[in-house]
Simulated scan of single mutants.
Amino acid sequence: MSLFGRTKWNPAGKHCYVTGGSAGLGLSLAVLLASHGAHVSIVARDTRKLEDALAKLESARVSNDQVFRSHSFSIGTAEGANAALKAVMEEHSGLTPDAVFLCAGKSTPKFFVEMSEQDLTDGMTNGYWVQAWTAWAVTKKMVEQQRKGKLCFVSSTLGYMSFIGYASYSPAKQALRGLADTLRSELILYDIDVHIFFPPTMFTPGYEEENKTKPKITLKIEEDDSGLQPDQAAAGLFKGIQAGHAHITADFMTDLFRASTRGSAPYHNFFYDSLVDGIARIGVPFWRSGVDSLVRKHRAEHQQYLKEQGFPLQNGSN
């Protein structure tokens, strides 16, 4: 099948490596790839979740020849990312995967002033380095072995914009965009395709966990967010990969931010993107104004919250 002369990517018979593959988007994507005939390797930390995920991969099997493997590693360091990749490659004659999907990540929303040094450090580790180290390890091996392939990062709608509560998360997701855009250009040298996915809110176990620390004002801003189920997000990612999009979105709101902040990333379609950009020029300022208004109205409640948390507030001098 083709789209405007481009052959759609078909994962059948290809080895796909999915980090964060034991839950949420990573698991949904791994199952989807399996259902299309791919060999799938998943990496995460929780061995019990990996066992459950492997069973779901088996239920999606379409051929006896497919190879499904799970590996338990922490990939937030260069050492861990290299060790995980080595284990994944050993199952496939020492060859690098044909496609790598970097779905690992975590968000812990808080107010910037109440974050610790560790919170900010963990934000970059869990939002940026957990993907960047694997990309670095895989790319080196692909070039060494002269292997073509695909590399797909997972950012967020917050990789295009941001608002209150996401000071430890959004910077990491925007940094991923910078890395992906750079590598999309650089890895042309080696016929390695680079993509980055910008999903909106996804209703995953990770989302339930982040809501435990999320400020009330952030929850208020997000209360009308329809979001996506992991299977819907995975389908959107897969569709974007098949279409060859460098920046992939799965909902119209994120598409507005994509078109209006596209920078040097390739168009999806010139006429469509121009239309969406025109809508964004009108709609995004209204959205921004509404969010800022909600934050201003939250000032008194926030001051009370800080006092209750023991934050050392002094009497105002103005």
Score class of each variant (00 low, 15 high):
F311Y: 15
A172E: 10
P215T: 07
D224F: 11
V67W: 04
R61G: 10
E51H: 12
Q229H: 09
S93Y: 11
D119H: 02
E210S: 05
M142Y: 10
V276I: 14
A234W: 07
A175M: 09
A132N: 12
W287L: 10
A23G: 05
L294Y: 12
Q229K: 13
Y17P: 03
Q174L: 13
A55K: 10
S289T: 13
Y190Q: 09
T7R: 11
H302M: 09
M161K: 13
E58C: 06
K148L: 05
M142I: 14
K106V: 01
L237K: 00
H195Q: 08
S264D: 15
N315G: 12
K141W: 14
T125F: 08
V62T: 15
K173T: 03
D292V: 08
S156V: 13
S41Q: 01
Y272S: 11
Q118N: 03
S170W: 11
K239E: 15
S74C: 08
V113F: 06
S72E: 03
P109M: 03
A81K: 00
D251C: 04
L179Q: 06
G127L: 00
V138E: 07
A300H: 14
S168M: 08
W9T: 10
H92F: 15
A259H: 04
F101D: 13
P285E: 08
C16I: 15
S317C: 06
A167L: 01
A135F: 02
I188K: 11
G227H: 13
T77L: 04
I188R: 11
T157C: 05
Y207C: 04
L275T: 15
N82Y: 02
R296E: 14
A83E: 03
G5S: 05
F111D: 00
G240H: 00
Y17T: 01
T249E: 03
M124W: 12
H15E: 01
G283P: 03
D181M: 11
P199H: 04
V88R: 01
W136S: 11
I188D: 05
F198N: 03
L237G: 01
S289V: 12
A99S: 13
T134W: 06
S63F: 03
P285I: 04
Y207H: 09
Q314D: 14
G316R: 10
A53H: 11
F311S: 02
E223N: 14
M142L: 09
K214N: 10
Q174W: 14
A104F: 11
L275G: 07
L33C: 05
K106Q: 08
G206Q: 06
Y128K: 00
S41V: 01
F257Y: 15
G165Q: 02
Y166R: 02
G26P: 02
G206E: 07
L183V: 13
K173W: 02
A300M: 10
G244Y: 09
G5D: 04
D181N: 11
I188M: 04
S264I: 14
S162R: 05
I282N: 05
L313H: 03
K216N: 13
